[in-house]
Amino acid sequence: MANNLMSGIIAQQPPIEAESDVHVVKSRLEWGEPAFTILDVRDRSIYNEGHIMGAMSMPIDELTERAAISLDTSRDIYIYGTNDGQTTQAAQILRSAGFKNVSQLKGGFGAWKAIGGATEGIIESRTPAAADDYNVVSRIQNHIETQQK
């Protein structure tokens, strides 16, 4: 009964697309939308250097085993690798293992950094903040200018 009461209050998320733009994921994070995971399938050493903040490391050669024990098959999963080919391969592996809501993050980590998405890692922590990283007004202005190009 409790689920029926809550279903009218909490909006259902539309199904995720097979491929997603980094803006979609960033928006979901900023709005605090629940129940999704970001997977980084690059080698662990590359992940340690820098990755999307909150992304889980699941190197592609361990993906099936680790995902099966740690993720629900109906969870929304955004996935990225070293390049689009690795990302596509990883998404196919998960879909073949029964994961229903897998989306390839177009452009991966590079695209994420290009839009000012939050990052973490050894190299990322040593990279000085850009001039507008802490200025919301400048970031909005940069976003508007980028969208107009």
Rank of each mutant, 00 (worst) to 15 (best):
M6S: 15
G8L: 15
G8Y: 14
I10Q: 08
A11I: 08
P14G: 10
P15V: 07
I16Q: 02
I16S: 07
E17W: 09
D21I: 12
V22W: 05
V25M: 10
G32T: 07
P34V: 06
A35V: 00
T37D: 09
R42A: 01
S45F: 11
S45P: 10
S45G: 04
G50D: 03
G50V: 05
H51V: 01
M53T: 10
M58K: 09
D61V: 04
T64P: 03
E65Q: 08
E65L: 08
S70A: 12
D72L: 01
D72Y: 04
T73K: 09
I77T: 03
Y78L: 09
I79G: 02
I79W: 00
G85K: 14
T87H: 05
T88E: 14
Q92L: 03
Q92F: 00
L94C: 07
S103R: 05
K106R: 15
G107L: 02
G108T: 03
A111Y: 12
A111N: 12
A114L: 07
A114R: 13
I115L: 10
G116F: 04
G116I: 12
A118Q: 11
T119D: 01
E120L: 02
I122E: 15
I122T: 08
E124T: 12
R126E: 13
R126L: 15
A130Y: 07
D133A: 13
D133W: 03
Y134E: 12
V136F: 07
I140C: 06
Q141S: 11
N142L: 15
H143F: 14
I144C: 01
